[in-house]
């Protein structure tokens, strides 16, 4: 008996020992509680966030007393009234919403062929190049990348110098709305491609061959087969891009040069420039509300896409 035990590898016996200890500490009748125990840290983290939201909700109901620079003791809806009526906030909100929608549409259009090529190319070398090119920007970071654009697009930047060579006078390429949208699209593209690629991988290449043998040209195949089957990926990628660009801070701040503020920049100004915690909190809550509304609307219209994770697809 002892001899045969010795025949087992050491690692097996170590595992047996660990299992015995685990059984002591966590008897089998507790087994049903185990999943909840593993869930606890994540719930705790989200819980702290909710506490923060309650705190922000409290702040949003107090106004700043400009003579003492203290928050008022009484609750009032004055901040909300200001946020919804003052044209400055409407402009910022409109700019952010429109911007995030434009960025999402263009990003998806650009990301789709990229993801498609990456998934379908028979050349593994090309696939690797496309993947590395996708991850490279992640290593650089958002702020550094935005500064990079400042250098490239500046008045003495590469683009203007190249234009100068062909006789075009220097142009102001920065600190305007298109520059911010350009920066955001460039920033969002990898996210969109990474969200789309798994959805496209899930479409068997045989389906496209079948469509073409049944008489569909590439446009017909794309419209009736690839696009409908890629919808979960498009919805998932669209949701991620729209929320990320709606709440983005660095790109509008750096490439907009203060003239193209998004909601996050306005919130920052309220908290750290005018020190109006109440107004900052109000704007934050409104942003959460608008974002949730937008996501809810997309869920209702198109379903949750890949974010639904129902696992019904094979």
């Amino acid at each position: 008996m002892r001899k045969s035990r010795a025949a087992y590898p050491l690692t097996w016996r170590v595992m047996d020992m660990l299992e015995a200890i685990a059984a002591r500490l966590w008897p089998a009748r507790f087994a049903r509680a185990l999943p909840y125990l593993m869930l606890a840290p994540a719930v705790l983290l989200v819980g702290i966030l909710v506490l923060g939201l309650v705190q922000i909700g409290d702040s949003s109901l107090r106004v700043l007393d400009t003579s003492t620079f203290l928050m008022s003791e009484d609750y009032t809806l004055a901040n909300y009234q200001r946020a919804l009526t003052e044209s400055f906030f409407a402009t910022v909100a409109g700019r952010s919403l429109l911007g995030s929608v434009i960025v999402t549409v263009i990003t998806l259009i650009l990301a789709f062929p990229y993801a498609y090529l990456m998934v379908r190319t028979p050349s593994s070398a090309l696939r690797n190049v496309l993947l590395v090119a996708l991850f490279l920007p992640f290593f650089i970071g958002q702020v550094v990348r935005a500064y990079g654009w400042l250098i490239i697009l500046g008045n003495q930047g590469m683009v203007n110098e190249a234009l100068g060579l062909v006789g075009v006078p220097p142009m102001r390429l920065l600190y305007n709305y298109p520059a911010v949208l350009f920066g955001l699209i460039q920033y969002m593209l990898p996210f969109a491609v990474l969200m789309l690629a798994p959805a496209l991988t899930a479409i068997p290449a045989e389906l496209e061959a079948a469509a073409s043998s049944l008489g569909a040209n590439w446009l017909g195949t794309f419209r009736h087969v690839v696009l409908p089957l890629a919808r979960p990926g498009l919805v998932g990628a669209g949701l991620v891009v729209v929320t990320l660009s709606l709440t983005d801070f660095a790109i509008p701040a750096i490439l907009g040069g203060g003239s193209q503020d998004f909601i996050a920049n306005a919130i920052y100004d309220q908290f750290f420039r005018t020190s109006d915690q109440g107004m900052g909190a109000t704007l934050s809550l409104l942003l959460v509300a608008v974002g949730s509304l937008l996501v809810g609307l997309v869920f209702m219209l198109f379903g949750a896409g890949t974010l639904a994770m129902t696992g019904e697809r094979k």
Binding site: P204, L207, S212, S213, L229
Partner: peptide, 18 residues
Amino acid sequence: PPHRRAIGMVFQKLALFP
């Protein structure tokens, strides 16, 4: 190209549109 040939094909994994 395949879509201009009058050929019907049944694929190994059927390739029905789900």
